[in-house]
Design a binder for these strands. Structure first.
Lengths: 233, 233
DNA sequence: AATAAGATCGAACGGTCGTGCTTTTTGTTT
DNA sequence: AAACAAAAAGCACGACCGTTCGATCTTATT
């Protein structure tokens, strides 16, 4: 796999201003948003397959058929739910660090933001995507494709920030960016698992330790200075 | 969390010789085993909640009611399925390294065995437990408890082997065993995720690199010598 | 050969599933 | 106020869900 050096794009800003133009078509969109908000939350607990139209309709205070009319099929509802979850993810993980100092500082800030998003229980059933990855990892189809694409986007973004850091000489020459991304991503994901399964808050400390340790190990003096200046240990 | 230094016990050897004594009660047990074998496989794809009695009955070539009689409730079927999966896990991951040189060598061998178990697609839907952790991490109840217990047993075992290595002076004094276990476990779990979602075989290489790197970083000269002597890089 | 116990089955229960079709309500535009 | 399209509701469908029950078949013990 070649190192991805494209700048990752946020979709949230675009999607948020989706079609509210000239005041038309607002009623339907509002209920649709409300439905999807509940859908994401339910699916984070019950899974995308366990998300049922009947229950969703009840919790969103609409009739089952009215709800159904919005999406046309359960598959489409699932896809829309994944997209809605992506927006929430970007809003909570990406946006807070969008203005951080590019390079290793932004990378470290992103990981911290990610851990905070876990700890804050942004979705009531834990990270929507951690669950979805495992639910659909052996269920071919559009939903799986969408989820896999989301994971690729995430990994690519981590690698991108590492790449910026490398270009800024904040990382030792020859650093394997994909390997670095793999390891810090693994630590974060494991923290989420332990937090969700055991409510083990220590897991976040372990993840932070692991991530810092990887970043410091791969950093140049300039990189370490940048981290220190930003207050990131 | 205090460092667990208890020796982990394998249940597989015990359970395998479960009740075949004196030739009684064999017919029911055989079909029961066959049912559970299918159940584990289906659940690894569809999840424990997605595992339905109707489908399982069809695939196991028994009537739905006949199947049901074996377990009395879906909950009980799920619990038995988790236990059956535990046996398979122990058989494929633990047993192959049961005779390895205690300490860091056995620890490294265990991780390799674990990665091999992933790569071999032991269950058709990927690692049963990776899926189950995330499916039940926000569904309180006996199934979740059983699954969480299984995860604790695994982590405790990894820590145990690290503890043996520490006592043998194969690890640097002051090494945080839990932290070490956290990091190498995270790498393995991430490899499984990427393998399952993207069929990315490189992920295993990344996990091996990460694990070796952690073990070497924490090893004493004696530890590194033991690893080298065992051919584990 | 008779009996008892356990294993398996067939049919059915009340519910819920996802999905259509038809009707009513709602909001906007004339 | 009337007309109109969009949005939501009502209702029904076939399929499958987990579960129950009584009958049948298999096996081991008398």
């Amino acid at each position: 796999m070649a190192t991805n050096i494209e700048r990752p794009e946020l979709t949230v800003a675009v999607v948020q201003s989706d079609e509210p133009a000239d005041g038309r078509r607002v009623r339907g969109d509002r209920t649709r948003q409300a439905i999807l908000a509940r859908a994401v939350d339910i699916a984070s607990v019950e899974g995308l397959e366990g998300l049922s139209l009947g229950r969703l309709a009840k919790e969103a205070d609409v009739s089952k058929s009215g709800l159904f009319a919005h999406f046309g099929s359960k598959l489409e509802l699932q896809l829309e739910t994944v997209r809605a979850a992506s927006e929430i993810f970007e809003e909570h993980v990406w946006l807070p660090v969008a203005d951080a100092d590019p390079g290793i500082v932004q990378l470290a800030a992103l990981m911290e933001s990610w851990l905070r998003y876990f700890r804050d229980d942004t979705f009531s059933g834990g990270c929507f995507f951690s669950n979805a990855y495992h639910e659909f990892d052996s269920r071919p189809g559009p939903v799986r494709d969408e989820i896999a694409a989301q994971k690729r986007r995430w990994m690519a973004a981590v690698v991108y920030h590492a790449g910026v850091a490398a270009r800024l000489a904040q990382l030792k020459p020859g650093t394997d960016l994909e390997q670095l991304a793999f390891e810090i991503d693994a630590a974060g994901a494991m923290a989420n698992s332990l937090w969700q399964l055991e409510r083990d808050a220590e897991a976040f400390g372990r993840a932070e330790t692991a991530i810092r340790s990887r970043l410091h190990g791969a950093s140049t003096a300039a990189g370490r200075r940048a981290l220190a200046a930003a207050g990131l240990t």
